[in-house]
């Protein structure tokens, strides 16, 4: 029993790391532009596919050190793709209605997904792992090196982001623009620069998550971003959208909720609800959080100026 729970904790941390990495991209963009960047999940997929192509081109499939190089190049490439998406599809629509940029984002998501499909093919591709293999057997639970690596990479990236945002000049600028773009521009910060930076970092992190995800499951499909993206966005709302620590917390929390619900629901309901309902748990979390705490766990203020109208019913 204890071993089983320990095993689930480890699994939850693994999947949570990936949700958290993707959620960061959603939350940063939403924090600054109040835009759901639908293209983000597809850049995650594109990252996995580019990683695969690079592995072939560089001949480093299966090498953890090669994986570092692939991860770095993919980060940069997808980051640049993210910046271009913003410049082409979102920037011209800034300051118009709220609907227009969302529709544009949706269109970009469809374009990227289908571009990946046309280049990479419809069939699932076998993915070479960049992660070290091997297992540790602790108290009856099996921890793979892959899981440890995913967790470590995610944590290092998150700490790096946290340091970047809070300790560097550029990071402070991003925060200033997120707080209030108008005021920031008055003190001489170019909001476009900060926004471009966000669209570089967010998708870059998402791309790394894509490589980790596909390496872990050993497969990449062009549709895989859809559901994961939705869950990562749920994680961002769960933690409090716009908040970087919130996205991390939300990602791990959602990992735990999903892992444990999927494992225990069939037991608790006598097999009525099976593991195939995995995706439903995340959605239930989304609806519940919107019902009871729409600002999320770390969201600061619930007021008209942010998200919610009180006592309407």
């Amino acid at each position: 029993m204890g071993a089983l729970i320990l095993q689930q904790i480890i699994n939850a941390l693994t999947v949570g790391s990936i949700y958290a990495l993707i959620a960061l991209g959603y939350t940063m963009v939403y924090g600054v532009l109040r835009l759901i960047n639908f293209a983000h999940s597809e850049l995650f997929t594109a990252g996995a596919f580019i990683g695969l192509a690079l592995a072939g081109a560089l001949g480093v499939a299966g090498h953890p050190t090669g994986g570092l190089l692939v991860g770095f190049i993919t980060f940069v490439l997808i980051g640049l793709a993210g910046v271009s998406v913003e410049i082409v599809a979102y920037r011209p629509l800034r300051g118009t209605s709220r609907l227009a940029p969302m529709l544009s984002a949706l269109g970009m998501a469809v374009v990227i997904q289908n571009a990946v499909m046309l280049i990479g093919g419809r069939r699932p591709l076998i993915y070479p792992s960049f992660l070290p293999s091997g297992v540790i057997d602790t108290f009856g639970a099996i921890i793979t090196y892959k899981q440890i690596t995913i967790f470590l990479v995610a944590v290092i990236l998150m700490i790096g982001l946290e340091l970047f945002v809070n300790r560097t000049n550029l990071g402070v600028r991003i925060r200033a623009v997120a707080e209030n773009a108008e005021t920031a521009s008055l003190v001489g910060i170019n909001p476009n620069m900060a926004i471009s930076l966000i669209f570089f970092i967010g998708p870059g992190l998402g791309a790394v998550a894509g490589i980790l995800y596909s390496s872990f499951y050993g497969v990449a499909t062009f549709t895989m971003g859809f559901v994961i993206g939705m869950k990562a966005f749920t994680a961002a709302i769960l933690g409090g959208i716009g908040s970087i620590p919130g996205a991390v917390l939300g990602g791990f929390l959602l990992g735990f909720i999903e892992t444990f619900a999927t494992a225990w629901m069939p037991v608790l309901t006598g097999g009525l609800i099976g593991t195939e309902y995995r995706d439903i748990f995340a959605f239930s979390v989304l609806v519940l959080i919107l019902l009871f705490r729409p600002a999320g766990l770390l969201g600061e203020h619930v007021s008209e100026e942010t998200m919610v109208y009180k006592s309407d019913f």
């Binding site: 759901i36 969302m102 559901v227 939705m230 959605f283 989304l286 729409p294 919610v308 109208y309 019913f313």
Partner: peptide, 21 residues
């Protein structure tokens, strides 16, 4: 009921999820 008392954007993600569910 849970979504429409919030700002507009959330409807997109909730309906996307609902369609999938």
């Amino acid at each position: 009921i849970p979504v429409l008392r919030l700002r507009g954007d959330y409807l997109a993600i909730v309906t996307l999820g609902f369609g999938e569910i």
